[in-house]
Nucleic acid binder design. Sequence first.
DNA 1: GCCAACGTTGGC
DNA 2: GCCAACGTTGGC
Length: 136
Amino acid sequence: MAYWLMKSEPEAFGWNDLVRDGKTEWDGVRNHAAANHLRAMAVGDEALFYHSGKGPEAVAVMRVSRAARPDGSDGNWVSVEVVPLAPLPAPVTLKAMKAEPALADLPILRQSRLSVAPVSDAEWKTIQEMAHRAKG
DNA sequence: GCCAACGTTGGC
DNA sequence: GCCAACGTTGGC
């Protein structure tokens, strides 16, 4: 199973919206690198829901419930379906991630505009631990 | 094929 | 609100 991180502006579509809807089509990705990550997702993979914009932070975990398929737009863009799993015990802020040496290679820290990115097993574990620690 | 101009995203 | 990073477009 692979891990991912997916960004959305909460004003447009946030974690609460996903919980309310029960599932969502993760579409609108118009960046080839990010789209390739969507294509690499398998059902059962888990992804951090990351709120971009003001006070950027990872807030929850969701699960990929359907692999990538064409999203119906022009071109070869794809979407996946995701379902909510659970909120993190406490949000993990971008600031905290930047301050954590174990996350130095996290793709979103190296390329802030990448909206869908892989997270390694070790990085995932680190972020989970940070979330538990932040809860206190 | 190169590069300047422009638009978008996202952090601060 | 501003700016940096990045991608795309269009002129040459």
